[in-house]
Amino acid sequence: MNIRRFPMTREISLLVLVYLYVPVVVLVSYSFNANRTATVWSHASLDWYGRILANPAIQSATQNSLVLALCAATAATVIALLAALATARAFPSRGGVEAVLNMPLILPEIVVAVATLMLFVALGVQLGLGTMILAHTAFCIPFAYLPIRARLEGMNQSYGEAAQDLYANRFRSFRRVTLPLLWPGIMAGFTLAFVTSLDDFLTSFFLSGPGTTTLPVYIFSSIKAGITPEINAISTVMLVISVLLVSLSFFLGRLRR
């Protein structure tokens, strides 16, 4: 008898995997369906991918999404890196500081989204890419922070001391030792922040202005207007991008310590 194996857990686990992946498979396979009705299969085709490439609305939404994710993830990663360097060593209010940093993870997104919307409107700020970048930066901070913090945690404090002992001042020690060792964590954090921003729907839904639709917002309004195979194709593209980026971040996080 293997002490670690419990009856039925294997069967249930496989069932859960099916549950998790069947919708994805269905979505992806329908995106290659030539038939207009989106649910009746005729034959395989790349028609819909050609259509989304040619659709100017999707092009501009894609561009907005990428610019938004790039700006928000970069800002969030820099901010999170600084914060992680501060919280690497214990200090009296560290628990409180970390709770504040992780607040965006706990708060219901819809609440923060409408609250931010009202703030921008009350201040008379024009809604658009700028307001979305600000809001996305805030909720991306914990996603960038956690991998960097985890990497720092696993890093021996004596590396920094050794560098200073060998005549590197604080800045040189950071550049020659801490930063290279931290790099996989920083990249993992950036990637997760990027994916989070790219996939975000709710905040963008409330904060996008005229002409600054993002891809998820475009998809939502398209679904509401009626299901088309085009949505399947664009959704598949989003899915593939997320999976690639998350796998990359997972790999970076496991990189040699």
Binding site: V24, L27, D199, I223, S235, V246
Partner: peptide
């Protein structure tokens, strides 16, 4: 990590 909207849309189909 994949898009919440897309995953729910898959169930819609």
């Amino acid at each position: 990590w994949t898009n919440l909207l897309v995953r729910n849309y898959a169930w819609l189909i």
